[in-house]
Design a protein around this nucleic acid. Sequence first.
DNA 1: GATGAATGAGGCTTCATTCAT
DNA 2: GATGAATGAAGCCTCATTCAT
Lengths: 208, 208, 208, 208
Amino acid sequence: MPSNSSNAKKKPPVTATPARRRELLDTAAEVFAAQGYNATTVRRIADEAGMLAGSLYYHFDSKESMVDEILSTFLTELWAGYDAVLEAGLGPRETIEALVTESFREIDRHRAAVAIYQKESKQLAALPRFHYLTDSQTKFEKAWLGTLERGVADGVFRTDLDIRLTYRFVRDTVWVAASWYRPGGQHSPEEIARQYLSMVLDGISVVT
Amino acid sequence: MPSNSSNAKKKPPVTATPARRRELLDTAAEVFAAQGYNATTVRRIADEAGMLAGSLYYHFDSKESMVDEILSTFLTELWAGYDAVLEAGLGPRETIEALVTESFREIDRHRAAVAIYQKESKQLAALPRFHYLTDSQTKFEKAWLGTLERGVADGVFRTDLDIRLTYRFVRDTVWVAASWYRPGGQHSPEEIARQYLSMVLDGISVVT
Amino acid sequence: MPSNSSNAKKKPPVTATPARRRELLDTAAEVFAAQGYNATTVRRIADEAGMLAGSLYYHFDSKESMVDEILSTFLTELWAGYDAVLEAGLGPRETIEALVTESFREIDRHRAAVAIYQKESKQLAALPRFHYLTDSQTKFEKAWLGTLERGVADGVFRTDLDIRLTYRFVRDTVWVAASWYRPGGQHSPEEIARQYLSMVLDGISVVT
Amino acid sequence: MPSNSSNAKKKPPVTATPARRRELLDTAAEVFAAQGYNATTVRRIADEAGMLAGSLYYHFDSKESMVDEILSTFLTELWAGYDAVLEAGLGPRETIEALVTESFREIDRHRAAVAIYQKESKQLAALPRFHYLTDSQTKFEKAWLGTLERGVADGVFRTDLDIRLTYRFVRDTVWVAASWYRPGGQHSPEEIARQYLSMVLDGISVVT
DNA sequence: GATGAATGAGGCTTCATTCAT
DNA sequence: GATGAATGAAGCCTCATTCAT
């Protein structure tokens, strides 16, 4: 059979062209992040994508399944990064540094998804199909809180602070950044991570 | 029809009892905070208040005017507190400490309003009637950023950090607390403020 | 307390005024029967009722719940009549006569509901909320088939016929009448029943 | 544009292969019968036929033209059979017997079409293109009712029954069978016809 | 002959809001 | 002050149909 034979029967992907899906999801994510999930109309997304509202349903089942795919894709990638860090056998401080850096990288790559996650995950998690958000949340807490506790035990983190307060502090500190971060801005994700870490670890006041 | 007929029975004042208003607004704020402004139906608020949806319109012009009143009331009180601090002539570090403490007190008193502010102010600010949100934001930035700059100039805050990054860091870090804070919890607002300040100022790592 | 005291606190019925509901349901039933459930738009029903489509939702949850109420109301009444007959201790022939007569009375009273039942019940029964249609069907078959079998055993009905065929014959014979029956027509339900019974029991040919 | 250009490349005949058409129509008829015409989506038919919805439009102009072809094909065959009977010069009783037998044969051959006809013809007949349904109905009534009247006049059918009632009774009784009939079942169409005729003509009760 | 992608009309439903009582 | 009933705009989604490839 000649090598250029045009692929005989290329079976059409059940889920339509993945590339088109991704494009549309990126558009949708941008709008969701800017306006909020509820306030975003399907028509607005379609406008932005240059098609009619109904046409989106050729690609997706529902508005809900769009956020679903946006969030689950993001979380999958996030955990790929986190798991790599957590399995690297680093000390607590280095783990925190790596997690924070990885987080800012994710914000850089998935700004819209992160913003959506921040704003909508609590609402969405109430729906059965979004239970994975809660699972991820739990796993997330285990990873960060565990690392912080290990750090306290090892004497690298302060013992005079409420550990859960510290956890929330560090966690929020990183992720709210998604609300103002713009990719291609003045600082690279790594630089932002470096400065945030410096603040979180050493404080903003001058040591006297 | 005689000209005086329209006043025959004087209808109850358009603004009803202030106390009832406040009750209703508290209820509304709670629901807005829990479900999001857009996702909250007027009927849900009415249910929670033990009346029918239409009845709310005796007390308020619209759903929008409810958030409006919730947010403006909150901001008025917030600025009363902030202005007192800013006019006290404190040094930069003490000012930051006072602002953070005042902020946690506001979160304690107006948890729902703060949560709404966090989640919805960007959307709402687009509407003319909510321009005061933008004004407040500007004033807010001036106060905090100015204090931080003064601190850097005075040598009490580090000079090696991007000042705007620092500003966002401190600002967000404090206000997101509204998303998890529950009044009557383990720590008083003052205690939370103390620990937050300790982390922000001195960092979470042990000085070696 | 004076007898005319206007009912102090008459608690508003949770399900809105039953009378209005019934009116609207009658309208809906008429349209469903005439056009078919699927082909009937909610707007059409509303037009017929002199209101806007959305207004129907003050009274009903959904189009589906309208047919639901129409059909279940009808079946409830049908079974009240049937059960009375079945418990009367009549012989098989008299039971069949009574059931047929009762059936034509139901067609007279609930023509639209019967027509809907005939045309749509197979489709609807697939939905969980309409499982009672299947239950009713089963009970129905048990009642009629049982009576026929009793009649065959007692020697009042012919033994040379397939009993299930006979059942279907009698059943269909009665109920399809709903497709042409118009209340207030030439014959009363009882007269129609009499003639139908005469045909079913004795045949249309002249005995030679 | 030269007048012959439109034939330059002769496209495949508008009516495709008759065999394929028939296959697709059979599939469509099955689905229409099972789900109802309105409730059946073009996509569902296409699924069943192993193609995409759009592809059906190579074979047919529209969903409507599918039912059209299904029903008109059926009616053409039905009338071929009926006309043969009616022109055979039989007596009224024998004519009724032959018509009933022929009807069950049609039900056997075109179960789906008959079911569609039963459920949808009233709706469809409102559309101009389906006026032939009304015509057929009229011709049908003339044939059956006429035969019955002839039978009454000849003294072979009872005179004490409302003749139109009798007509509807016989007509419905036969055709509803399409709703439960399954080809290849226990009884042949001829056997079913025989028993039906026996019931209709002589009744189900034992002659005493 | 068939696919993939889109159109556009229309359907069901929700919801803020109004208003007579 | 509140209820019951309705309005009207808008939202999500479905589906027959079209058409370039």
